Simulated assay, not measured.
Amino acid sequence: MQSTAGSESANNGMPENGVTPWLGSQIQKVLDSIYAKYKDVDDGVVATYIPELGKADPKKFGICLATVEGEVFTAGDWDTEFTIQSMCKPFAFQLALERHGSEKTLKHVGVEPSGEAFNSIEFDQKTGRPFNPMVNAGAIAVSSLIKQKPVEAGVDAFLETMGKAAGRKLRIDESVLASETLTGNRNRAIAYMLLNSGIIDEEVHESLHQYFAQCSMLVNCRDLAMMAATMANIGNQPETGERVFDFQLIKYVMAVMFSCGLYDYAGNWAFEVGVPAKSGVSGGIFACVNRQLGVGVYSPKLDAQGNSVRGILACKELASHLGMHAFDFSNVGSSFMQWLL
Rank of each mutant, 00 (worst) to 15 (best):
E174Q: 15
M193N: 15
A139T: 06
D173A: 08
R168I: 07
M162E: 09
R188K: 15
A213G: 08
Y211G: 09
V155N: 01
G167F: 06
R186M: 07
T181Q: 11
P133K: 01
S179A: 11
G163E: 06
E174N: 13
G184E: 13
G167C: 05
I200W: 07
F212H: 10
G138T: 09
A178I: 01
E206R: 10
S179G: 08
A178W: 01
M193H: 13
G154I: 00
A141M: 06
H209A: 02
I140T: 04
S216P: 10
A213P: 06
S179R: 10
E206D: 15
V155Y: 01
N185L: 14
R168H: 11
E202R: 14
V204H: 00
L159G: 05
I199D: 04
M134Y: 14
T183L: 08
M162D: 08
D173N: 15
A139N: 08
V142Q: 04
R171F: 06
G198L: 13
N185A: 10
A157F: 12
L177W: 03
K169F: 01
N185I: 12
T183N: 14
A178P: 01
V176K: 06
A153G: 00
T183Y: 14
S175D: 13
A139S: 14
A137E: 07
K147Y: 02
R171L: 04
V151D: 09
V176C: 13
L195C: 04
G154R: 00
S216D: 08
L177Q: 05
